[in-house]
Every structure is written in structure tokens, then in C-alpha cells.
Amino acid sequence: MPAQATAETSAADKRWKLVEATMRRNGYRPDALIETLHTVQGVFGYIDREALKFVAERLPVSPSQIFGVVTFYHYFQMKPQGRHTCSVCTGTACHIKGSKALLDDIEAHYDLKDGQTTPDDKVSLLTVRCIGACGLAPAAVFDGEVEGSVTPDLLHERLDNWLAEEDEGNGEEN
């Protein structure tokens, strides 16, 4: 499949080039799809319809098939995430050691459920099926960093810090 950077989406955006590079490395074959989607999510944070279209134009895979793959795998997200993410592990060891109580606590204090993001887009809550840190249960991942023996206090500390952060100066103050 020849890659033609006709889509205006690719214009001058470095991130699209990274996506393109993954496809090229895998010879634009159909089996490049999952690797490509990992790159998309890695550089954009999520996979939206625009990205889906971009990939479908270049790989010999139809948009509907890609949609099927994206929605099949839990790891892929189609919605933008908050600035920070907290993933609570719900594997067996964590379950036995009280991960459910942690999730209940977050819901009670922050009105946040699995898969939701706070209204100010600062924090997203996710659950994961075992991150293999069972020896340190209950575990959670704060922005990619694994933390073991998590207590409600620790959760509050992390989440409060994130929520108290200044809004990013994206040109406009709010």
C-alpha cells in the first residue's frame, strides 16, 4: 500500500509521521494494525475517528474492521483521557486485599467511576485486570507509575494534588 500523505490531517503533524513509521516498519500489511493502533494511542492518548480513517486509508483493512479491533481490546480508548490517569488494579490478589473498597472510596469522595473523567478533565479513573504487582496488592498505577499497598489516604493525596493543579496555560486563562 503506497502511503500518500494527502489527508490534511497529516499535514505537518509529527505525530502522524510516527504512526506512518509504524505502518512502514510493518510493510503496510494487515497485521500491522494492532501495532499501529498502539502507536496512535501512544502519541495521541486515544484513538478517534480521524485516526481510524487515517489508518484505514493506508492499511488494507476496512474502517469497520478497525473499529471492531479498537472496541474489542480493552487497552484501546476512543475517548480522550484526563490530564492524569489513575488505574486501580482489580486482579485477584488486589481484589482479596480490598481494591473494591478503594474504588468505592473514589466514587464516594470524587464522584468518579471506572472509565470516567472529572468535569475539569484533570483526572481519569480506569481499572486494569492485573498488572502483575500481586506481591504488593492492592496496587494502582498513577500516570504510568506503579504504586503498591495503596490506601485510601494515599489515593486522596495523589488525586487531591492533581485536582489542585493550575489549569494549563493554553493561551487562555480560565
Partner: peptide, 25 residues
């Protein structure tokens, strides 16, 4: 190396193969 994407069923060998081929597991 091929990355999984969070589907337990991909531990089953034929599902795993489907996933390596870039399809739903």
C-alpha cells in the same frame, strides 16, 4: 515482539494467533 492489547482470551492459542495477525482475538 507483538503487543497484546488487554484481552484475556488472547491467551488461548488460536485467539493469540488472530491477534498477531492484527485481528480481533
Amino acid at each position: 515482539v507483538r503487543l497484546g492489547a488487554g484481552a484475556f482470551v488472547c491467551g488461548e492459542e488460536t485467539a493469540l494467533i488472530a491477534s498477531i495477525e492484527g485481528r480481533r482475538g
